[in-house]
Every structure is written in C-alpha cells, then in structure tokens.
Amino acid sequence: MSEQRVASRYAKSLLDLAQERGTLEQVKADMDLFRTTLEQSRDLRLLLRNPIVKHDKKLAILRAIFGGKVSEVTEKFFVIVTQHNRESALEWVATEFQSQYDVRRGMQVAQVTTATPLAPALREELNKVVRRQSGLESVTLEETVDESLIGGFILRVGDRQLDESVRNSLRKLRNTFKENPYQPHL
C-alpha cells in the first residue's frame, strides 16, 4: 500500500478520534508542531524512513522530542504507528491531517504559482474559481512566484493541477514539433 494511502487512513483515524474525545484543536496543534519539526530536521525525517533503526528506538526518540509537548492522544498515536511499523508514513500523516482538517472545517487551500505577483483582481477571480469547483466557501490561496513560468499560472487544489503556464505551452509545442508530421516530396 502506498505511503500516501496509509497516511490518509491514519490521518482520518486520528482526526476522528480527536473529534470524538473533544481534543481536535490540541491534536491539530500537535500535528502542526510535528510537521514543523520534520520540516526543520532532515535527520529526523531520515531516521523515521530508515528501515535499519528498530521501531522501539524510533518511538523512544519521538517520545524524547515530543514528550510533554503533545497531548496524550498524539503520544498514543505515535505508539500505534510505530507498533505497526509505519513510522515512514508519519511525515505524510501530518500533511494529510492538515488537509482533512481543512476539509472538515469547510476550508480549501489552493497553491497558485505565477511568473509575477498576482494582481488583486486576478487573486479574487482565482478565489471564485476554486470556491466554485470545491463547493466550499472558505478558500486560502498560497501564492508562489516562479519566473521560469514566463507567464500564466499553475493552480493546485488538492490532488488536481491546472497548468496554464507559457513554459508548459512551449513544452507541448516542442513535443509536437518533435513528431514532425511534415514529409518532403522527393
């Protein structure tokens, strides 16, 4: 089973359990802390992925780092994940937890990459498009500038992507020319 699918299932289980116990906001804060720690520590990410390090050792390290800083539900979650030898999925679980939390709260996060900063009118238009497509009222646009796009934009919403960049159009055109349908007459 892929890491993403495993992460999705664990994240949903953690989300449901936290909501059932009334600790959803605390567990969300725990997952934010965990995700931030993983982003800042390459060594921790590599350790969790390493199949040579024993699972109980990984759990001991997680407890040393997060013990007393996270809720009891989150600590028990770490225990369950390590007992099932799925520590490598923890990195994805934190990200997936955030996505599922946002959906449950009626929020949608969309990443938009453009060649230049977005104008306010275009930002509002993209907001409307994402709201219409997702059916959710609250949309957050995460903007990134990438000059290599030349023009246009790339819009990512969940697992969908719309690439309307000039760079992508040029790549498609280049591939079309490689096919070279022209046949000279001899």
Rank of each mutant, 00 (worst) to 15 (best):
N127I: 12
D159C: 08
T144N: 10
D163S: 14
S88E: 08
S99Y: 12
S169K: 10
E164P: 01
T82D: 03
E125C: 02
R156L: 04
L126W: 04
L136N: 12
K128F: 09
L162S: 07
H84Y: 06
P117A: 02
K128N: 12
R167L: 09
E124A: 15
A115G: 05
G158H: 07
Y101I: 13
S169F: 03
T116Y: 08
N85D: 10
R86I: 02
S169W: 00
L118E: 02
L126D: 03
I150L: 15
V145F: 00
S99H: 13
G135Q: 08
T113W: 02
V129R: 10
N85F: 11
Q108E: 13
V130C: 13
R123Y: 05
V129D: 02
Q100E: 07
E137W: 06
W92S: 00
R86P: 02
D163A: 14
E137M: 09
T144M: 04
A110N: 02
M107H: 15
N127C: 11
K128A: 15
L149K: 02
Q161E: 11
R123D: 14
R132S: 13
F97R: 03
A94K: 00
I150E: 02
V139K: 08
Q111E: 13
Q100C: 08
Q108W: 02
F97V: 09
R131T: 11
T116W: 05
L90H: 00
M107G: 06
V139R: 11
G106I: 11
N85Y: 08
R105F: 05
D159S: 13
G135L: 12
R160I: 10
L141T: 11
A121P: 04
T144Q: 12
R86C: 00
E87G: 10
F97C: 06
L155P: 14
I154L: 05
M107Y: 12
E137H: 12
I150D: 03
N127W: 04
M107K: 15
L141H: 07
D146Q: 03
S169V: 02
F153Q: 05
T116G: 01
Q133C: 14
S148K: 13
G106K: 04
I150P: 09
Q83T: 07
S99P: 10
G106Y: 06
R123P: 12
V130K: 13
P117V: 08
E143Q: 11
R131H: 03
N168D: 01
E143G: 04
R105G: 02
E143P: 06
G151D: 07
A115L: 06
S134T: 15
L136C: 11
N168M: 05
D102R: 03
M107W: 11
L136Y: 09
T95G: 07
T95D: 01
G152M: 05
D102L: 04
T113D: 00
P120T: 02
I150Q: 00
R104K: 14
E91W: 00
V139S: 01
T82W: 05
S169M: 06
E87H: 04
Q108L: 09
E142S: 06
